[in-house]
Design a protein around this nucleic acid. Structure first.
Length: 484
RNA sequence: CGGGGCGUGGCGCAGUUGGGAGCGCGCAGCGUUCGGGACGCUGAGGUCGCCGGUUCAAGCCCGGCCGCCCCGACCA
């Protein structure tokens, strides 16, 4: 009890900075299972299970859209990394190098990959000769390193796990189509599996991927009002294929450079998940990716122990039989209340309480993590009704996030209005933009908000819309926010 | 790399004018408990970040170094 009081006092005292409070209480508290060494995540089994389930959701969709997995080298020879000018410039500041082996200097130093375009393009050059070899649709699950000046647990770590898709196409149209197709896969997966609503859109020139012609993103809004980029899809044009000389002989017997795309999501999604859905009591995981979807907590006294534990085990078996990821917490060393709190912190969607009184009455108590609502469910119906309860939970979680995002999306017509909104309420802000880098820079300078993207839906300027800085006619209706 | 802060049992911290290394949580044992983070008793666990200096005496004062966190510039 005392600990709880301390915890609550801690929250109150830190609420002046809402984001910091949120990170301290939700991200870090909930992350008891994680640690961070020099900005590199150390993910223990429960947390890794979350990532594995996220991986599985994305991977399934990649396969459904015709992609195959492969794995490429961790080290990138310097000469290779240097081939695409913009790419080098963009990544150089954050690339660590291997220069020595056993005390002996290497003749060519090796970069630890910040992303794999260069190694993969080197491979593609060898693989592709004919239009018949196209398209190449490959994805890689791997770790990458970007030595950022500042790290933030899960949201920006020096080393992170991710997925990078790299495709080659015969025509520009086909590559552009792929870019948009994967962006849509990301949106659908984020919203369906992770219950996180996102906005699809195109990045500004200054924010696009180093070496890309165009970058698209899905932008989400966290519970603290900060935006987060949950995934990106790039149309690379022929920038890399020209730099790496990836050519194919087309049907018309002329040599052409391939058109390429790349796209990625990372373990940042785990951080986004925590800070989108979590609350003061810890994580709330969407059932679709929760390592444990339902936890059974037996409640008993010495006299009823045998009976209750037996029933709990039976329920456990039934749920597993019904394909539910269930766990029976039959630890005898901690009391039920402790278990409730512990599993709530770990974000388990549903908790099933079973005690002597329940057995007598032929029901169980099912408690929902999202709103702590408790209902009685007939014992005989439990396994059967579980999938629907999980589906409802998933839908409710998404709806709650969607409603929050919509409530925290506003409009601004001047820089002052934007500044006011950003400093008092945060969230997304729509504003007219003439497309100039000057406006973009001015906005960032004055409000710390950035242009997240130009949404595919709603990004067209409305009649008479003006740039919020220059007052010139707007070319776009952009979505702005403070972001991680 | 600029500005600020902090290094004391596993975690979170207190430590007054320099003289006993402490508290809470956690951990171990025993007992009572068990429907929302239990309680009692007993106990284990620390070269006070590192090096040097001042002093009869340093967690505390001085110098240097190392590490971490936060705010900026950079970014998935």
């Amino acid at each position: 009890m005392e600990k709880k009081k301390e915890f609550e006092q801690g929250i109150t005292s830190q609420k002046e900075d809402f984001s910091q409070w949120y990170i301290d209480t939700v991200l870090k508290t909930a992350m008891a299972d994680y640690s961070c060494v020099r900005g590199c995540m150390n993910i223990r089994p429960y947390g890794y299970a979350v990532w594995e389930n996220i991986q599985a959701e994305f991977d399934r969709r990649f396969k459904e859209t015709g992609h195959e997995n492969a794995y490429f080298p961790l080290f990138v020879p310097e000469s290779l990394l240097m081939k695409e000018a913009e790419h080098v410039e963009g990544f150089a500041p954050e690339v660590p190098w291997v220069t020595h082996v056993g005390g002996e200097a290497l003749t060519e130093r090796l970069a630890i990959r910040p992303t794999s375009e260069t190694v993969i393009c080197a491979a593609y050059k060898e693989w592709i000769q004919s239009y018949r070899d196209l398209p190449v649709l490959i994805n890689q699950w791997a770790n990458v390193v970007r030595w950022e000046k500042r790290t933030r647990l899960f949201l920006r770590t020096s080393e992170f796990l991710w997925q990078e898709g790299h495709t080659c196409h015969r025509t520009e149209a086909e590559a552009r189509e792929e870019t948009m197709k994967m962006l849509e896969v990301y949106r659908e997966c984020c919203e369906t599996a992770l219950a996180m609503p996102v906005v699809k859109g195109r990045k500004s020139e200054s924010e696009k991927f180093a070496g890309a012609v165009e970058t698209y993103s899905i932008e989400g809004l966290l519970a603290d009002g900060n935006a987060i980029q949950n995934g990106t899809s790039h149309f690379l044009g022929q920038n890399f294929s020209k730099a790496f000389d990836i050519k194919f002989l087309d049907e018309d017997n002329t040599e052409k450079h391939v058109w390429q795309t790349s796209w990625g999501v990372s373990t940042r999604l785990v951080g986004a998940l925590i800070m989108r859905h979590g609350d003061d009591s810890g994580l709330i995981l969407p059932p679709r990716i929760a390592p444990i979807q339902a936890v059974i907590v037996p409640v008993y006294k010495e006299a009823t122990k045998g009976l209750v534990l037996e029933e709990a085990a039976k329920i456990h078996a039934e749920l597993r039989g019904a394909g539910i990821r269930a766990k029976c917490d039959d630890r005898e060393t901690v009391r039920p209340g402790f278990k409730y709190n512990e599993w709530e912190m770990k974000g388990v969607p549903l908790r099933i309480e079973i005690g002597p009184r329940d057995i007598e009455k032929g029901h169980v108590v099912v408690a929902r993590r999202i709103d702590r609502e408790k209902t009685f469910v007939q014992r005989a119906e439990l396994a059967k009704s579980m999938p629907a309860m999980l589906e409802t939970f998933q839908a409710d979680l998404f709806e709650r996030a969607r409603a929050d995002m919509s409530e925290n999306t506003r409009e601004a017509s001047t820089l002052d209005e934007l500044a006011e909104i950003i400093s008092t309420q945060r969230g997304f802000v729509w504003a007219g933009w003439d497309g100039s880098p000057e406006t973009e820079a001015e906005v960032k300078e004055k409000t710390k908000a950035t242009i997240r993207n130009i949404p595919l839906e709603g990004g067209e300027p409305t009649q008479g819309l003006k740039d919020l800085v220059s007052g010139k006619p707007a070319k776009h209706r952009a979505l702005l926010a403070r972001a991680y």
